Amino acid sequence: MTAYVVMIREETSDPAEMALYREKAPLAREGHDVSAVAFYGAQDVLEGPEFEGAAILAFPDMDAARAWYDSPAYQVARQHRQAGSRTRVFLIDGV
């Protein structure tokens, strides 16, 4: 069953760290079956607090999503995202 990684960037605190994240994060997709469903496009918040942007990545299943997230390449990129922003990230099964 398709699984999704959802990232909601609440606030950027260090643009330089986020620039490093944007450089390194695409490299972490290599070797993983991942596709972008939504990627920081226009948004219209209907409920809840405003946020800067969101990305939704699709994977074949939860194991594949977790393998990408736990991969050494993404862990390197993640350090920069965490240093440069306040972001919520979660995995969710599709239907």
Rank of each mutant, 00 (worst) to 15 (best):
V95M: 01
T12C: 08
I8P: 09
E47Q: 13
A58E: 15
T2G: 05
W68A: 03
V37E: 13
M18V: 14
G31P: 13
P49Y: 03
Y40P: 10
E47G: 07
E17P: 03
S71W: 00
P49A: 13
A25S: 15
T87G: 07
D93N: 09
L27M: 13
F51A: 09
R86S: 13
R22K: 12
A55M: 05
S13W: 09
S85K: 04
Q82Y: 04
A16S: 15
R81Y: 02
D61I: 01
G31F: 06
G48Q: 06
V5I: 14
L46E: 14
Q79F: 02
Y69C: 05
A19I: 09
V89L: 14
D14Y: 04
A58T: 08
H32W: 07
W68I: 02
D61A: 07
S71F: 00
D61L: 07
E50D: 08
A28Q: 05
S85N: 09
A3N: 12
V45Q: 07
F90M: 10
V89G: 09
Y69F: 08
F59T: 09
R88P: 05
P15N: 07
Q43N: 02
H80T: 03
R9E: 12
S85W: 05
E17L: 01
A25W: 04
D33T: 14
E10V: 15
A28S: 11
F39Q: 13
Q79G: 13
A38Q: 09
E50F: 00
L46F: 08
S71N: 02
G31D: 14
Q75S: 05
E17H: 05
S13D: 12
A55S: 12
S85G: 08
D44E: 15
G53L: 01
A58Q: 15
Q75F: 00
D44G: 07
T12E: 11
V34E: 15
Q75D: 04
V76H: 10
P60F: 02
A65E: 08
V5G: 10
A54N: 03
G84C: 05
L91R: 11
Y21G: 08
Q43I: 02
Y40K: 11
L27P: 07
R66H: 05
R86L: 08
V5C: 06
V37Y: 08
S85E: 03
A54M: 11
G48H: 06
W68D: 04
R81F: 01
A16D: 15
P60I: 06
P72A: 00
E17I: 04
T87N: 05
R22T: 06
E47L: 11
I92C: 03
E47N: 13
R9F: 02
L20P: 03
V89M: 10
F59E: 13
A83N: 14
Q43V: 05
P49N: 12
M62P: 09
R29A: 03
F90I: 06
A67E: 11
L91H: 14
A38K: 09
R22Q: 14
V37W: 11
P26M: 06
Q82N: 11
R22S: 08
Y74D: 01
A54V: 02
K24L: 15
D70M: 00
V37C: 05
A28L: 01
A65C: 03
E30I: 14
A16H: 15
F51Y: 11
V89E: 11
F59L: 09
P26I: 01
A83D: 13
L57H: 09
G84M: 04
Y21T: 10
